[in-house]
């Protein structure tokens, strides 16, 4: 029972309490860049989920078996692994599942430089998560990212049709709403298990 509880707590922590975008401020670039429509935001969210889980699996193995004696190499090794992994996944998906490839489209290569992916792998290592835990944590964190970006896309779609003072139109109002959303998510800090 306690394992199930641990996993549930971890998921809620990763999704809400430590939401990557709105609380930890990682992955802001895609959060602002592709959040104009719910559709594209969902696409980005799915692509991030895909890459985050795969990247944590691979980096966990790299950290455990290759650079266990040299932890200062984590950052550079992880960047290397993630970049190569995204390239590999892109090639593989293009060949094996063309429909998924066209759905993910441009988002897949964009994630190569997404700091949220690097962030989740570093956190996994820093907190000494087991293999299963790190997979689960990164999956939940990616869901949290998707939640944030889809919520924000919904807000921005509404903004398109509302009356906004001229000097706030476009990015200013988007940044302000992102800030408000972030403050709202701070409310989850009070959760205790």
């Amino acid at each position: 029972m306690s394992i199930i509880k641990d996993f549930l707590v971890l998921a809620i922590t990763a999704m809400l309490v430590e939401n990557f975008v709105l609380v930890k401020f990682m992955g802001i670039c895609p959060f602002l860049g592709v959040s104009k429509k719910i559709e594209t935001a969902t696409g980005m969210g799915i692509a991030v989920t895909f890459v985050m889980v795969a990247a944590s699996a691979l980096t966990w193995l790299v950290n455990e078996y290759i650079i266990a004696n040299a932890p200062y190499l984590q950052t550079i090794a992880f960047i290397l692994v993630i970049a190569a992994l995204v390239q590999f996944i892109e090639m593989f998906v293009r060949k094996a599942v063309p429909s998924l490839y066209s759905a993910l489209g441009i988002y897949l290569p964009l994630i190569t430089t997404n700091c949220a992916v690097l962030g989740v792998t570093m956190i996994n290592v820093q907190r000494d998560y087991s293999f299963g835990m790190s997979l689960w944590y990164s999956f939940a964190a990616a869901l949290g990212f998707m939640l944030a970006i889809v919520l924000f896309a919904g807000v921005r779609e509404r903004l398109e049709t509302s009356k906004i003072p001229k000097y706030l139109k476009g990015f200013p109002i988007a940044l302000i709403s992102a800030g408000l959303l972030s403050i709202a998510f701070l409310g989850f800090q009070g959760l205790s298990f």
Partner: peptide, 16 residues
């Protein structure tokens, strides 16, 4: 570090 990172890069490069 040279061997481990270089090794990772080589393996990944070959894989790609």
């Amino acid at each position: 570090p040279a061997l481990s990172v270089g090794g990772i890069a080589l393996v990944l490069g070959a894989l790609l």
